[in-house]
Design a protein around this nucleic acid. Structure first.
Length: 298
DNA sequence: GGCAGTCAAGTACGC
DNA sequence: GCGTACTTGACTGCC
């Protein structure tokens, strides 16, 4: 088990997700921004490694507009050495990496042009992880997509479109249960496609068909090929008290996390903490999990 | 230098 | 049909 957090580090005074407006796009601006983002990514990874945080989600903004038609620049070749260097660092420290394209990436959109743009976006994510030299255990997670007032039809469209995705995307893509498509739907999609399921504990608590947390972890674990995909990934958050249902908590609820660790003790997986205070919660989670035999030691 | 409007992309929901 | 949440900051133009 590795423990991690997504995209942003609040301790270090640097950002790996600096971006700029489309209207101010120039090749020079892109090079400057990506260069600075990569420097910061390296600093974050070094920080994480020193704290025993071995799981990290790299921001989709690392290369702004990478999948947009405005970007004609061969950033892949230009930054090849930098990517390779950072990838070596990740592998040397035995860190796990994921990425999460945002809500605009939709495999099952009824609009084919949205699907086409989504494929470009997925290819960008896969290329980035390829440039880092990471194997297929580095995953790209997405949601199943929209419902479009026809759940069975939208699931079927996902399955059909999935089959047409390029191989570099297929080897990394995983789906995540959410309010719209709970675990049972994801499992049905897995049976047709073989796509691994990333279990989101928080979304599962909001939308489920009565499956308990340990049972669910067991079910999703079977969708990951240990040799190729690595350990299952799990997104962890809890409800912010007194807020709208579905709002992520600001910080780790140590008691809830401790209960979660205990109840899932029969399974091994990597945990991504989706909490606002990022590395702060990750470091607290590591202290909570200190004696857990699953924890990967640094 | 500071302020406030605005920012690539989509869906779903409430009014 | 429109505004807003999702999620959040920070870019950018303007004073």
């Amino acid at each position: 088990m590795r423990i991690g957090y997504p995209c942003i580090n609040r301790t270090l005074r640097c950002k790996a997700d600096s971006a700029f407006r489309l209207s101010s796009y120039t090749e020079d601006r892109l090079i400057l921004t990506v260069s600075s983002n990569l420097d910061c990514l390296e600093k974050i990874l070094a920080f994480n490694s020193s704290k025993g945080i071995l799981f990290f989600r790299i921001t989709s903004d690392l290369v702004p507009f990478a999948s947009h038609p405005v970007c004609k620049f061969d950033w892949q070749s230009h930054f090849k050495t930098r990517f390779s260097y950072i990838g070596n660092l990740i592998r040397a420290k035995k860190m796990r990496i994921s990425m999460h394209p945002d809500q605009f990436t939709l495999i099952n959109s009824v609009d084919r042009s949205i699907f086409a743009r989504s494929v470009k976006e997925l290819v960008y994510h896969a290329e980035l992880l390829d440039l880092l030299g990471l194997d297929a255990t580095a995953k790209v997670q997405i949601h199943v997509g929209g419902v479009y007032k026809d759940r069975p039809g939208s699931i079927q469209r996902f399955i059909e479109r999935y089959g047409s995705l390029p191989e570099p995307v297929l080897r990394r893509l995983v789906i995540e249960n959410d309010e719209k498509y709970p675990l049972s739907d994801c499992l049905a999609i897995n049976r047709e496609t073989g796509i691994p399921i990333l279990f989101d504990k928080f979304h599962h608590e909001i939308s489920n068909r009565g499956e308990g947390i340990p049972e669910s972890i067991g079910l999703v674990s079977d969708t990951w090929d240990a040799g190729r995909d690595g350990l299952p990934m799990v997104d962890y958050s809890s409800q912010m008290t007194g807020e709208r249902r579905g709002k992520h908590a600001f910080s780790l609820d140590e008691r809830d996390f401790s209960t979660f660790l205990y109840s899932t003790r029969g399974y091994d997986f990597d945990v991504m903490l989706e909490l606002k205070d990022k590395e702060e919660s990750a470091m607290r989670a590591l202290r909570v999990a200190f004696k857990d035999p699953r924890l990967v030691a640094i």
